[in-house]
Design a protein around this nucleic acid. Structure first.
Length: 484
RNA sequence: GACCCCAUCGUCUAGUUAGGUCUAGGACACCAGCCUUUCACGCUGGCGACGCGGGUUCAAAUCCCGCUGGGGUCACCA
């Protein structure tokens, strides 16, 4: 008998809501909806260092904005909860112990140092990388004693050591790996938290997920997952690995080369339906060749087996064209509603207003004075270009400083506020032997396109991290190719 | 480096499962023109691809092999 289709999106709350998450969520959503099944949201927050509730909130928000509503999740509950992995610790512990008891997993006492050394040796020998199974031969009674004595350890999966491991992917068919190629994956970290591999398999099983649709980067750990299902004696779900979104140079999409935060697109004026429509086009083509369609149309026509395997380049130009098409379809009142929803909403306007208030002399001044708050990209005219170059530096050097500023300072800010931005900028100046005065004007021009603006930190705070990131990137790109 | 995945215009793709109907279709971008007080939209046309080499076959973009190229993975991150 046919089991109800259940799919899930399982993001890790460790940063901005990623466009790749939206992409994978869309396909999972579409399959569940067209089959009348359920779409589940599960938060994979087993990385205690990096997971934040702010990130989790942004993910909920981004998915809601896109209209990819879930039937079960941490916020709405459901019969298979809890849906946050940090709240499921006992479940993982119990299952991990089952595996140890049955001999499918074993404690490993290797130190960080030994592991680093091992890796260095393997690298020098240009051999295969991976754990060498050192602790696998420890007698189970002795291992139990050492654990009881409180010795630091992890739990590793005992993978088969020889033979072929054949796994199945919906789009690719059978994929086989030589067993020697796959090492004994850590299942439980020394802090007692499960790794992705363990938690993922247990949860997908317990939550009765029927189709695991995820990004292609997971395909090489599929043998470990399949082995886990076998060790538990569970029937594995259907696995389907989606191609990775790419930068223009075809490398895996990254924030260094592309805007990747859903927040960016939202603030830059993209419509959720256009985002979804474009993402759907990344790997799927309508039978009639139509390129503009709604989520409902997509759900109806979608065929998972028909997804193409080439890694699609995420092309802002085409996204923008599609967005324009969607905008033209809106009625005037609907367009007004959209404008008010995002850029012209009271919430945002009330943030911008105070910054302009004492600087304008007519109401009309407001618009010319604040226009950079309402656009996606800004242009740099000749005067701006000139002034954007840091004193005593060449344009390419300035570009490098901008990139450094992003990567080593701004990216790390979790609470994007005027205070934290100021602190970051000032300490960046100190660390890089720059006077605040020298850096701030170029940054101001980079993020606004002009020299006369409200106070820089407030401005950046209101613009939002994602818009600032991307404008700083564009500015760096402009400078890089500029002659001194 | 090892392993795995992938391979049609610059980009997204149709066609590949059942080889002929493919002198390879559509879309974005680009170019030209039309429409138009401008711009945009819209319309018309143009440019532009089966990575290479071997097979199999009467016939290959489609099947097989090799090569090349691109990507991913090789964490106590997901």
């Amino acid at each position: 008998m046919a089991q109800a289709v259940r799919t899930r999106i399982a993001p890790s709350p460790t940063g901005d809501p990623h466009v790749g998450t939206a992409y994978v969520a869309l396909f999972n959503y579409a399959l569940a909806r067209q089959c009348g099944g359920q779409f589940v949201l599960r938060i994979e927050d087993t990385d205690r260092q990096r997971s934040t509730s702010a990130s989790e909130a942004m993910i909920f928000d981004a998915l809601h904005w896109l209209g990819l509503d879930w039937d079960e999740g941490p916020d709405v509950g459901g019969p298979y909860g809890p849906y946050r992995q940090s709240e499921r610790s006992e479940i993982y512990t119990i299952h991990a112990e089952m595996l140890v008891a049955s001999g499918h997993a074993y404690p490993c006492f290797c130190s960080r140092e030994r592991l680093d050394e091992l890796r260095a040796e393997q690298k020098a020998a240009k051999g295969r990388f991976g754990y060498d199974g050192h602790c696998r031969s420890i007698d189970s009674d002795e291992a139990a004693r050492r654990r009881a004595a409180g010795e630091a350890h992890v739990i590793r999966l005992a993978m088969p050591t020889q033979g072929e491991i054949v796994v199945r992917d919906l789009l690719r068919g059978e994929v086989s790996f030589a067993a020697e190629q796959i090492d004994d994956q850590v299942l439980v970290k020394s802090d007692g938290y499960p790794t992705y591999h363990l938690a993922n398999v247990i949860d997908d099983h317990l939550m009765e997920i029927t189709h695991v649709i995820r990004a292609e980067e997971w395909i090489s750990s599929l043998p470990k997952h399949v082995q886990l299902y076998q060790a538990f004696g569970w029937a594995p779900p259907v696995f389907c690995h989606l191609p990775l979104l790419r930068n223009a140079d075809t490398s895996k999409i990254s924030k260094r080369k592309n805007p990747v935060s859903v927040n960016y697109f939202r603030r830059a004026g993209f419509l959720p339906e256009a985002m979804l429509n474009y993402l759907a086009l990344m790997g799927f083509a309508m039978p009639d060749g139509r390129e503009e369609f709604s989520l409902a149309d997509f759900v109806e026509a979608f065929r998972l087996e028909a997804v193409s395997l080439g890694g699609p380049v995420f092309d802002l130009t085409k996204l923008t064209w599609l967005n324009g098409k969607h905008i033209r379809e809106l009625s005037p009142s609907e367009l007004l509603r959209r404008l008010r929803e995002e850029l012209l909403g009271d919430r945002y306007l009330l943030e911008v207003l105070p910054l302009a208030h004492e600087r304008i002399e007519t109401l009309a001044d407001f618009f010319s004075y604040t226009n950079f708050f309402f656009v996606g990209d800004v242009e740099y005219d000749d005067a701006a270009r000139t002034k954007m170059v840091i004193r005593e530096r060449t344009p390419p050097q300035t570009a490098k400083i901008f990139r450094l500023l992003l990567e080593e300072s701004l990216d790390a800010i979790l609470d994007w506020s005027a205070e934290s931005i100021e602190e970051a900028l000032r300490s960046f100046c100190e660390a890089n032997d720059l006077k605040p005065k020298e850096l701030f004007m170029p940054v101001r021009i980079a993020v606004t396109g002009r020299a006369a603006t409200p106070p820089l930190f407030d401005t950046m705070a209101v613009l939002g991290k994602e818009i600032c990131r991307w404008r700083l990137r564009s500015a760096a790109e402009t400078l890089r190719t500029m002659k001194a």
